[in-house]
Nucleic acid binder design. Structure first.
Lengths: 266, 266
DNA sequence: GCCGCCACAAATGTCAGACATTTACCCTTG
DNA sequence: CAAGGGTAAATGTCTGACATTTGTGGCGGC
């Protein structure tokens, strides 16, 4: 791909890294392809070589590109991207069309991990944690059914799930909360693109979140695990990972069909 | 802390970042404390400001320090460290005395996550995956009981668990394999420090790994999950997270005692 | 005495230019 | 045809100067 399709202006200093990083995450260069040279980037964006080099250094640190003297910069394989880095997650969250495979991978991860996290949360929850969870849930309720507030609703949704990860009281799990934003933001973008408001299923989704909150509040690990699975099944439908019909007719779609959805709809 | 206790020489270009990063991971500066100034680092290590700035930029990208013009560099809270970044994991792996709390957090994560990963692996395993698993297991067997090969044994151990994460066929889980190295390396360091070779328990540990491999090979998700728990219980004993007596007398120490061990032995 | 303003010092951030090093490619030569 | 070297092009590095931000102390006015 050429540079010409990228906007020439960008915000502050690391705005350039963000711009280039998002272009990479959106798949505008394929793995193995060569990335533009420093000199071209300087000219196109009208910035000093220093800024370009700083931005590129950031991309290297995130495993997005690899640079070698004399050869240039090449785009790394998706498998080497540091998906778990907060920067990458944040960038991915506000891309208009994130890579579909990537979103499926993230959701498959959530589907296999969040039940266990909910289990931990139910055991470790303290007053402060419950407050966070409750505040997020109330926010979701308040913004439900308001099409113009769907962005805020998604934020509360992110906050709710992030609160669960935090409630696990484990440093590692807590950092994975960063992955939630891209996963959940993609949900509202999809609903807006399809002009198919989630109102119908939103009450249902809200109810499932409520049961999860209640299970954690009462320290019932088994119930929390089951409720988390329930929430994620609903989300899988809204994300279009499993067909609506399947989820509505069948009470419990097998984990197999969600985790390995990629293999049958590439 | 002052700079005087750090070695003045280091390997190549990013060797400086590694040196400083490991000092941070080892806890030689406390969160909130101010990090040495660029000028001092230049003088102490006898390198150009460029190299120092590059190294510090890396530390910033990893969430280890935060820099602001005019104020200087301050060490971030542990919660903001990007533990999931491969660089951080790799650095942590060969620190002589890694932070004990950090190791407990990582192990607690593994204890709650790996059973689910093993379950996925049992479902998704293909021929190539089984080869990797088998090769690692054979390596563990070959190096068992050889005190002088404990380092190689640990590498095979890492490879075995990493192979399980890879077998999940999920990008996110796969990246978490990086966390295994610090966790497992710490194990052999501990055994060497205590002059208490793991020979006694090693046969047992090996047998448990073998049962896990067999469960995955036969695509038995339930058995794989149970076997993974079994392996981790053994590891918890070897890591000193739960007392030997407890694990030997009681067949199944509660997850609670492993996950929240930090709260009773701070 | 307290408050606000200003000047200064100290730290990081930025820039521009030259040079070093690595790499790929072509052209020559045996 | 193969081996060699030379050249161009790319990233990596160094240096010095300057810009910008931040904290601080002193000064004067109220």
């Amino acid at each position: 791909m050429t540079l010409t399709s990228l906007p020439r202006h960008h915000g502050g200093a690391d705005g350039l890294a963000r711009l280039l990083g998002q272009a990479l995450l959106a798949g505008r260069w394929r793995p193995g392809e060569t990335f533009p040279r420093e000199r071209d980037l300087c000219q196109h964006f009208e910035v000093s070589r220093n800024q370009v080099r700083n931005a590129l250094a950031t991309l290297v640190a995130l495993g997005l590109i690899e640079r070698t003297a004399g050869r240039g910069s090449v785009v790394c394989n998706i498998g080497e991207w540091h998906l778990l880095d907060p920067l990458v997650s944040a960038w991915m969250a506000d891309i208009e069309t994130p890579d579909a495979q990537l979103l499926r991978e993230i959701f498959a991860f959530r589907y296999s991990a969040e039940p266990a996290v909910a289990r931990l949360a139910a055991r470790a929850a303290e007053a402060e944690d419950l407050e966070r969870l409750e505040a997020a849930f109330l926010g979701m309720q308040r913004t439900a059914g308001m099409p113009e507030a769907s962005a805020r609703h998604a934020e509360y949704d992110v906050a709710f799930h992030d609160a669960i990860y935090r409630t696990s009281h484990n440093l590692v799990w807590r950092q994975m909360g960063h992955l939630l934003r891209p996963s959940i933001i993609a949900l509202i973008q999809r609903s807006q693109a399809h002009l198919q408001p989630l109102d119908a299923g939103l009450d249902d989704s809200l109810a499932r979140h409520g049961r999860l909150l209640e299970a954690i509040r009462s320290r019932d690990a088994d119930a929390a695990e089951a409720a988390a699975v329930d929430v994620l099944r609903r989300t899988a439908v809204d994300l279009g990972i499993v067909a609506d019909a399947q989820a509505e007719s069948v009470q419990a779609p097998s984990a197999e069909s969600i985790i390995h959805a990629k293999e049958r709809s590439p």
